[in-house]
Design a protein around this nucleic acid. Structure first.
Lengths: 175, 175
DNA sequence: TTTACTGTACCGTCTGGACGGTTTACATTC
DNA sequence: GAATGTAAACCGTCCAGACGGTACAGTAAA
């Protein structure tokens, strides 16, 4: 009975995210989420009364994780640009998973998810702009980050992508 | 009965893509596709005996569209870089829709879709590399294109994004 | 006659959700 | 400190509707 660090609620959200990321939204059913979290369906519905509430719970947690990430980015040793690009590649962290999961939900026409993702993007951009004082460069770097992120989530992983980007950004004096 | 340009088979594929893009894969059911194309369910299953065959049909058409797009990119008046970036933004063309739709399918762990998208990416990259003769720059530009594409499909539309990218790429001498 | 459908009636499985228990931890009362 | 109460944290089962797919009878044009 020991060795179970996270509480059930978080484990359910973890399971929901994992299914969304690895198998897509069609596979992320209540039954599947409950099974993945090793909880009965009744147990799931005790914590989240509907699938909608599951989504809400996930997005609320995402915003919290996002605030922490932005803070880390702002104070990163190697600077926010390097931090942003490095973490745009899916490292398999909890935050990465939550981000990808929210993307899946956003695609189902769910404005709650698009809003959350849009807010995160604004926070990141503000840090980039504050550091670079160059809107075009900040926007372009954000797009590169989006590209890295997109490639990762679509399984189009190009191993040396980050190296090439660093090369180009060095030419621009942005790194 | 006139005024119906496309044949039923294509209209079914169009409807499938449209549903995938605007409402996500959960909404793209056989019933919904048939209704969207104004065809009976029996009619749909006459052309495509299963949902799998619908996907196959879509991906086959996508590769054809892709070959045409790469050819246009190679011979574009303003050069392949400008063409690639401009068309990375969703213009609402048939090809854009097919691309986004395939992305949705790829996320459901469907390797056929990932393979098709991977091939397209390789074709584009080959043209960029051939034109620029600079791997880092070519990769970075492809990432920017992916970023533009990603933002568009996630509803994170930044209106002036392309302007900013052009600005930065001009500094690099890539445009 | 063949091709290209429409329309209806099904079937088995999956899905979101409702509901009625059960166990455990802890507080309250006597 | 034994008896009682109560709320949290579940489990297991059931159900209506949706889903992918089948089957088939009929129609209308080429």
């Amino acid at each position: 009975m020991a060795a179970q660090e996270r509480n059930t609620r978080d484990r359910l959200l973890d399971a929901f995210e994992k299914l969304l990321v690895t198998a897509g939204s069609r596979a992320a059913t209540l039954d599947a989420v409950a099974a993945e979290a090793q909880v009965s369906k009744g147990g799931l519905l005790y914590h989240f009364h509907s699938k909608d509430q599951l989504v809400d719970g996930m997005l609320t947690r995402l915003r919290e994780q996002g605030r922490a990430d932005v803070e880390k980015m702002r104070t990163a040793k190697k600077g926010p640009v390097d931090f942003y690009l490095t973490t745009s590649i899916n490292t398999g962290s909890d935050f990465d998973r939550a981000l990808i999961a929210a993307g899946r939900i956003a695609q189902e026409n769910d404005s709650r998810a698009s809003d959350a993702l849009g807010d995160l993007r604004e926070w990141w951009f503000a840090v980039l702009l504050d550091h670079l004082q160059d809107e075009s460069l900040a926007r372009t770097i954000q797009l590169i980050g989006d590209g890295l992120y997109f490639d990762d989530t679509t399984g189009l992983n190009e191993k040396n992508a980050l190296k090439h980007v660093r090369d180009v950004l060095t030419r621009l004096g942005a790194l």
